[in-house]
Amino acid sequence: MDISAVTDEARAADINSMYSDPDVDAIITLRGGWGCNRILDLIDYKTIAKHPKIIMGYSDITSLLLALNAKTSLVTFHGPVGISTWNEYSTDYVKRLLFEGQSFTMENPTDKGDNLTQVKDRILTIHGGQAQGKLLGGNLSVLTAMVGSDYLPDFKSNILFLEEVGEDIYRVDRMLTQLKLAGILGEISGFIFGKCSRCDSGESYGSLTLEEVLDDHIKPLGIPAWFGSMIGHIEDKFTIPLGVKAEIDADKGSIKLLEAAVS
């Protein structure tokens, strides 16, 4: 018997039944890992469109967030999973976005602690300016693995946000190159890179820095872009609503939501 089909069917069935279950109001994933791309063709998009509900997660869940938005226009949420750190910083964004339906501005902390200047969580502007568009994105590896499929939303004139964990810098370079060759980088209106946690230089002689790689790919686009936003495999993080219109300012590193994400 085809065991792998069973596991994919089972994971998809849990998503589908949460959307069809009238007793369930929202869906939050327990963790990421790998596996969401394997179930995209088993998701019941019609039922989801009929019963829109909040779905939240990040990392591998990027796949579901993007596919549900592409297929149903549902606003989905790049935010904490069950096993995330639900500290005050991250929970506050969840509350304002999901419970209170606020539209607000997200900006990195400016706390300098007892240092003479801020050293932690600074932003690095790649190209200044402001842009508008729908927020779309998630984990770089997961998003890149969807290129060529029918499950990515339209990035044209929208804002791409990315984060990554545990990938050598040359791999980040490779994946950004793929997004460029796929035409995605050339059509977005703005670019946000969150944190690249444990993105090392690899074992060979010589490496580019992450900043060099981002400069190589993003600076020539001439669009507002920055690195270091509070998005990624970190404890203090924004919750980003996919499919919601926003205005970004790459000089400040701010994301201003132009509409509420929930009804």
Binding site: T29, R31, P52, I54, I55, V75, G243, V262
Partner: peptide, 21 residues
């Protein structure tokens, strides 16, 4: 146009799922 889900209210039920690892 964006399909916005209903907001969360105290007392609501969250479905916990594990579609990946």
């Amino acid at each position: 146009s964006a399909l916005k889900p209903p907001r969360l209210k105290p007392g609501d039920t969250v479905g916990l799922v594990n579609p990946a690892g």
